[in-house]
Nucleic acid binder design. Structure first.
Lengths: 134, 134
DNA sequence: GTAGAAGTTAAAGCTGACTTTAAGTCAAGC
DNA sequence: GCTTGACTTAAAGTCAGCTTTAACTTCTAC
């Protein structure tokens, strides 16, 4: 498989595949006349990388998943180790998003005429909140 | 107020305030000997900007909130217009995060020994899912 | 009057995940 | 044998939202 075929088969651009190789996510394939020649496993590797990306892993984290454990560590154990903290991060981000949504629903009730009036109101209101809670 | 005092009062760095000014979020203040001199309203403006940022607005969106409407549009109407779509975006991102969390909880049950085995499994499983749903 | 803190500008740097560009090599079809 | 398209590399560009740097001016305190 050429890099173009691999790219087409995985929905990535060739440049992304080269980038992953350079980043250490993908091992360097064989070459024929200087050009990369991939075995079909490469598609699965890319699929795995895509899955990890879809579930919120950064490229350094994916590299950790692939190469950051002792050889003897099973794939399942690697996932459990990394997914646990990622789930916590996701829950934190969900919590934050809900808080943002709540603030937006409040501000939608705004009766201010001018933005400056609104700014004064917000600042005063938030200040009160801080002083009353402390 | 000097830029340093305004920065200290709003928890920003002077560079951020200059950046907001250049980005069109903050109107250019008066100058004394070349230096910016702020009125106390500037603190409220910055508070508003911070609030908008905290609720998920980008700087261009905040600029829109402040200057992207006819003068006659009330602050309340501006917020309602912009917050509505922002809330939808937030709900989409929450939905996505929950989907990611679900995928992570599944992969945590992985019994694979090697990552390559896992990659094959994932690719096959996902392919099945796609073909069976189409 | 001088040191040092704080202000000024434009321009470059930072992060992450790539893409684009430039300049060159190689392969396939006519 | 020539064109066209796909490949190669290193380096630079992209986006957001600032920060940092460099070179310079100005304010404040002693």
């Amino acid at each position: 498989m050429t890099i173009g075929e691999l790219a087409a088969g995985s929905g990535l651009r060739p440049s992304a595949i080269r980038f992953y190789e350079k980043a250490g996510l993908l091992s360097a394939p064989a070459r024929r006349n200087g050009r990369r020649v991939y075995a079909s496993e490469a598609t699965h590797r890319l699929f795995l990388i895509g899955f990890a990306k879809d579930t919120g892993f950064s490229l350094p984290e994916i590299k950790l998943l692939l190469h950051g454990f002792p050889e003897s560590t099973t794939a399942g154990d690697r996932w459990r180790k990394l997914a646990t903290s990622k789930i916590q991060q996701l829950e934190a981000s969900i919590k934050k998003a809900r808080a943002m949504e709540g603030m937006l629903r409040s501000i939608m009730k705004c009766r201010c005429t001018t933005i400056d009036q609104c700014a004064r109101g917000l600042a005063t209101c938030m200040q009160k909140r801080r002083t009353s809670s402390s």
